[in-house]
Design a protein around this nucleic acid. Sequence first.
DNA 1: TCTGGGGTCCTAGGACCC
DNA 2: TCTGGGGTCCTAGGACCC
Length: 434
Amino acid sequence: MYALLDGNNFYVSCERVFRPSLRGRPVIVLSNNDGCAIARSDEAKALGIAMAEPWHLIRAKLPDAGVVALSANFTLYGDMSNRMMSLAAGLGPAQEIYSIDECFVDLTGMPGDLVARADALRRRVLQWTGVPCGIGIAPTKTLAKLANHVAKEAHRKPGNPYPRALERVCNLAALPASELDAVLQATGVRNVWGIGPRLSEQLQAEGVHTVLDLVRLDPATVRRRFSVVVERTVRELQGQDCLAFEDVPPARKEVSTTRAFGVAVTTLPPLQEAVSEYASRAAFKLRQQDSHAAQVLVFIHTNPFRRGEKQYAKSVTLRLRRPTADTGAIVQLALRGLREVWRPGYKIHKAGVILLDLCDAGIEQRELDLEDEPAPRRRELSAALDRLNDRYGRGTLHAASAGIGGDRRGWTMKQEWCTPHYTTDWEALPEARA
DNA sequence: TCTGGGGTCCTAGGACCC
DNA sequence: TCTGGGGTCCTAGGACCC
């Protein structure tokens, strides 16, 4: 038996903890460059604001609705997530942190009333962190996700098809068969974890509209008609465990840093700064998970939304002399890649560095080449870099090729409405007034 | 009358997730 | 003026091997 706990409108809820005046108002959090909505309060959803809807369209559509837009403050959300996750871990013997605002908890062997237990935990998360959350309980991960969806909907929409009893905490396993069928019948196939817009369309074209329709399909037929992925989803819905519970997260298979620019870039020097910085950040992430990369991919492209402009997109993958997490080696190769893909005459909108072909840092191919700088020295250098930046703040020490001038560099992203790092910066501690 | 069988690796594209 | 970032897995097709 599994529980799936997730924070409601997580980013917005984190912001509201430190700005109670935002409660009851339509609030959205924007992606990098203040591009589009990536989190919406219930009030914003009620206004018809869609996930990933561009901010300039929202503003044009709802000029007088009082929508509050905030720039993403991932430092704050990450810290609030840690707090929520450490409380959620108390629900059962093992936890899988699935995303910044969601985790699965294995409930195997937990005695007593699971709904009462989950509800007590939910109240504790709200009281101790200020973030509201919902919990779904069921025999498989896919069903637990579905239960969580039901719990959320039962709370949110007046006139929704779900009984109030399932509000905030929903245990599908505790429902009598007839009631379970009614809940599955009332839920569209698109709400199932793993069924996206395309599959949903294809399923509906074959008369599969509700989760009840989906769960009654024959897995072998589904495999032939769709794929093994959809087959697994159907089996999971039928109560058969098909997805592994990953309480220790497997190492990433690739690590990337990619970003759209605040203003389009038309010359090579600012691109070199950006690619140098992205490569350094990616190398840092690589060291955080104790991996080495064997290949570096660099890409640049123009803005695909600007139909009238000349389009250009190019990427190149280069192999490192040998797998490494060394910032110097990775930056150097990324810059070489950039020179290969760069063509003048275009407005470059986005660039990125992706580290591929990762392996464990403990595996190392040594060489007899005496000219090659000994690896231990290079490792010490990167380690010192990380220690300095950890102690004195990100960006304290960085590659000169990434440019100087911080946010004044022309290409950095736009973030107009960012709230302070309330929980991770002494200077930003909120003050309480009587 | 008419071109094997079994396998690996790589890449591109498609679909999904938050 | 103006449209995110970071991932995963699966499949098909081509190149290549013996």
